[in-house]
């Protein structure tokens, strides 16, 4: 069972109360436990006591329905992109994407591979890129603090861009996913 309707365009942010909302959102980022590449292994030190991302209110959630942040951790194959689209579209608004590693920025060491994407933000709206191969835990924490700052300033609006330009993103996604068998929108 799923809803196949394209989502409505969100309202512009006008209310004063939004500032309070954004403050609250920025200080409790919940991350979908979903790893796509080698970065999924490199994220583990962040959970443990040495780097401890719970200091910043960042916690892992087992399901996309409960999460705000999707981490694209490293190289993304076409087959995985299909699953990532499903996961991303099932998350509740507002939602943010943090992309780790040089693979997501320009392909990195897999720039001539037959199966990995070179430019991630053609297919999904990325709010923060963290470079490195792989980035150290300190760099990832730095990326998260940048994301928090962007949320507080009301600039982390990738989810809104995705909704408003859904056709553009869909076209780009369908260009490389040849056996498209997803619904029009995965709620």
């Amino acid at each position: 069972m799923y809803c196949n309707r394209i989502p409505d365009r969100p309202d512009e942010r006008k209310r004063v109360w939004d500032r309070v909302d954004e403050m609250a959102r920025a200080n409790s980022l919940w991350v979908t436990a979903y790893g796509t590449g080698c970065g999924a292994i490199e994220l583990r030190p962040l959970h443990t006591s040495r780097f401890d991302m719970e200091r910043f209110g960042i916690a892992m959630r087992p399901t996309p329905r409960q999460a705000d942040v999707l981490i694209i951790s490293g190289y993304l194959a076409v087959k995985t992109l299909k699953r990532v689209i499903r996961v991303y579209e099932q998350m509740q608004d507002p939602k943010y994407i943090v992309a780790l590693g040089s693979c997501t920025i320009n392909g990195g060491m897999y720039f001539d591979s037959y199966n990995t994407l070179n430019v991630l933000d053609r297919y999904l709206p990325v709010d923060v890129y963290v470079n490195g191969c792989m980035p150290r835990p300190e760099a990832i924490i730095d990326g998260f603090t940048l994301l928090m700052r962007k949320i507080k300033d009301g600039q982390a609006l990738g989810w809104r861009h995705y909704r408003e330009n859904l056709d553009l993103y869909r076209n780009n996604q369908k260009e490389i996913i040849h056996d498209w068998d997803l619904p029009d929108y995965n709620w």
Partner: peptide, 28 residues
């Protein structure tokens, strides 16, 4: 592993991965 692959099989040596990657995925 490859879903909906349309080219010649990718591990054959006459398959040009760089050309395919630039044509399909592009560059920033």
């Amino acid at each position: 592993l490859l879903e909906g692959w349309k080219e010649i099989p990718p591990m054959r040596r006459d398959f040009d991965t760089l050309e395919f990657s630039m044509r399909t995925f592009g560059q920033r």
